[in-house]
Amino acid sequence: MDSNEVRDQITIEDEQGQEKDYSVEALFDMEDHSYALLTSNDETILMRVEDNNNEQYLVGISDPNERDSILHAYEIAVEANPAE
């Protein structure tokens, strides 16, 4: 992918009401859940994609062990199947 290519953008509002724009780097499924890997200029975050009444929304992952194990498994999968 060209580094100048525009990715899907999403705006996240935090608990303090501050909005921040992120690029969607990856969407993937793991252990019966869907996840979104999002990046901004200075931050990368992982969020779980939840479904409710045919609507999707993002939920933060507060458990650092869950987050780390998901990111580690994602890295292994990417290394095993690098993008062309």
Rank of each mutant, 00 (worst) to 15 (best):
M1K: 07
M1Y: 04
M1C: 11
M1Q: 12
M1D: 14
D2S: 06
S3E: 05
S3F: 05
N4C: 00
N4S: 10
N4G: 10
E5C: 11
E5M: 05
V6S: 10
V6R: 14
V6Q: 11
D8I: 07
D8Q: 08
D8T: 00
D8P: 03
D8S: 06
Q9M: 03
Q9C: 12
I10M: 02
I12V: 15
I12Y: 10
I12M: 15
I12L: 15
E13L: 09
E13F: 04
E13T: 15
E13A: 04
E13D: 02
D14R: 01
E15S: 08
E15N: 10
E15C: 01
Q16D: 11
G17R: 02
Q18H: 04
Q18M: 04
Q18F: 02
Q18S: 11
E19D: 06
E19V: 02
E19S: 05
E19R: 08
K20N: 05
K20S: 05
K20L: 05
D21S: 05
D21A: 05
Y22V: 00
Y22L: 09
S23N: 09
S23A: 06
V24T: 14
V24C: 10
V24W: 14
E25W: 03
E25G: 02
E25Q: 10
L27G: 12
L27C: 11
F28Q: 00
D29Y: 13
D29E: 13
M30W: 15
M30S: 14
M30I: 13
M30Y: 15
E31D: 14
E31H: 10
D32T: 13
D32K: 15
D32Y: 12
D32R: 11
Y35I: 07
A36N: 03
L37A: 02
L37Y: 10
L37T: 00
L37N: 12
L37E: 11
L38E: 03
L38D: 08
T39N: 11
S40N: 06
N41Y: 01
N41V: 03
D42V: 15
D42I: 12
D42A: 11
T44M: 15
T44Y: 15
L46W: 10
L46K: 01
R48T: 03
R48S: 01
V49R: 04
V49T: 01
E50K: 13
D51W: 13
D51Y: 12
D51I: 09
D51R: 15
N52M: 07
N53H: 09
N53T: 04
N53I: 02
N53A: 14
E55H: 05
Q56A: 04
Q56W: 06
Y57C: 07
Y57T: 01
Y57F: 14
G60H: 06
G60Y: 09
I61Y: 00
S62M: 12
D63K: 10
D63A: 11
D63P: 02
D63Y: 09
N65Y: 00
R67W: 03
R67K: 02
D68M: 14
D68F: 14
S69R: 13
S69L: 11
S69Y: 11
S69V: 06
I70V: 15
L71H: 05
L71K: 01
H72G: 03
H72L: 09
A73C: 13
Y74E: 00
Y74I: 00
Y74L: 08
Y74F: 10
E75W: 06
I76K: 10
I76H: 01
A80C: 05
A80Y: 00
N81M: 08
P82W: 12
P82T: 14
P82L: 09
A83E: 09
A83H: 10
E84H: 13
E84G: 15
